[in-house]
Write a protein that binds this DNA or RNA. Structure first.
Lengths: 218, 218
DNA sequence: ATCTGGAATATACGTTGGTATAGATGGGGA
DNA sequence: TCCCCATCTATACCAACGTATATTCCAGAT
């Protein structure tokens, strides 16, 4: 949200491509280069994993049918590994069941060859925009966790009880310390968490709580 | 969340079916009746809309290909009308593009005939569960809006500023009333909104704010 | 052994929040 | 007209919050 956002420039976005067909990779690289997109292409999921993700907004164009691990299986494995880049599937021989499974598991697009170049470019730009937003959110969450981790254990205790709405004297009894200590810790919490009001602190705490990824209904 | 939840019994859930083929409707009715599901079947989207939704957890089994309005168009129209029932598509002659569009617009399943009965039943139960959860959430939100609407205009003003973290004296200056009045209103707000602590009130206010439907990324 | 920094605690003081009581105002309805 | 009720306001009082200052204690460094 603040100025400390060195990776939200569209020019630095990266499009990853995983396709076992060299000619497809070349064609896609040409297409994406023609619209000033940075491309990193891989012939297998293993090669992609070994390379790792650069710290930049990105999306992934993934072939379904590949020797070894299929694109669908790899999508699931990425979820297991905590890799959250938006996925666009492309396939020459897909069926409805594949596409439904892919979309259920969070793919943002599923294109069958031959597809119109513009459809792929639209999907890529949408994916990059989604990833930029996700990165902004997770970056803000990480900043809050950093502030939280700088609190002493006692300060964390006090913050936890303060945002539950307990009075200082109740917190003191709960923690077995004096009310004065609670007041001092509370002041430290407000300062360290950069909360100007109690309302701020409560909203910060709720954002820290609701950190476990929500978009997994099913 | 509370005991006032008269519509969350699985037995009262309703499965709506829209399919122009009488024999398909009959077959589905038989299937669903065999597992104790309540069914309301319609031969067209118009007939469904005229009937309206019963106030109960539900899901909708929707044929894609129908004379007049297609299932996909009807899905979009329902979104426009604010009808939020989970949709399961079935089709005999679908393609990948259809299925991808349906899933992008929020369908929870897309089955091609012939499908296994169990797959449909699984999807229906999942849809009903999703709808029950959605109803619980929107019911709680409606309850909060009801409490909010019972506040006097002045009390709503005070609540809005209180949850922004302003001091009573600041609120008084902002509204052009005395600090005493702010204190009285504030007490009324806490009582009427059933908030025992300021933390409660802030969370209630945030739930009222974040009421505009979130699940529409694109 | 001595020094040092952090944490907990106590005292004191001022500010803010919250409620009770009572008076003033003002707009429908009997 | 008079009454009723809601709202605003003032006074008074107490609880809760927050900060400054000083003291004690203790672990780790010198």
């Amino acid at each position: 949200m603040t100025a400390a956002n060195p990776a939200c420039d569209n020019k630095k976005a990266i499009v990853y491509i995983i396709d076992d067909d060299q000619s497809v990779r070349d064609a896609l690289e040409d297409l994406l280069a023609s619209v000033d997109l940075n491309v990193k292409a891989f012939g297998s999921t293993q090669a992609f994993l070994e390379h790792g993700l650069v710290e930049a907004p990105a999306c992934l164009v993934l072939d379904i049918r590949m020797p070894g691990q299929s694109g669908l299986d790899f999508q699931r494995e990425m979820a297991r590994l905590g890799i959250e880049v938006p996925v666009i599937f492309i396939t020459g021989h897909g069926d409805i069941e594949m596409s439904v499974r892919a979309m259920k598991e969070g793919a943002i697009e599923f294109l069958t060859k031959p597809f119109r170049d513009q459809d792929l470019l639209d999907a890529i730009h949408r994916g990059i925009r989604i990833d930029m937003q996700r990165r902004a959110e997770t970056g803000a969450a990480a900043q809050l966790r950093r502030l939280w981790s700088d609190l002493s254990p006692g300060e964390q205790d006090v913050m936890r009880l303060v945002v539950q709405g307990l009075l200082n004297k109740q917190i003191a009894a709960e923690l077995g310390v004096s009310e004065i200590t609670v007041k001092v810790r509370r002041g430290q919490v407000m300062r360290k968490m950069q909360a100007k009001t109690l309302a701020d602190l409560i909203r910060i705490a709720d954002r820290l709580e609701g950190d476990t990824k929500p978009p997994l209904s099913g």
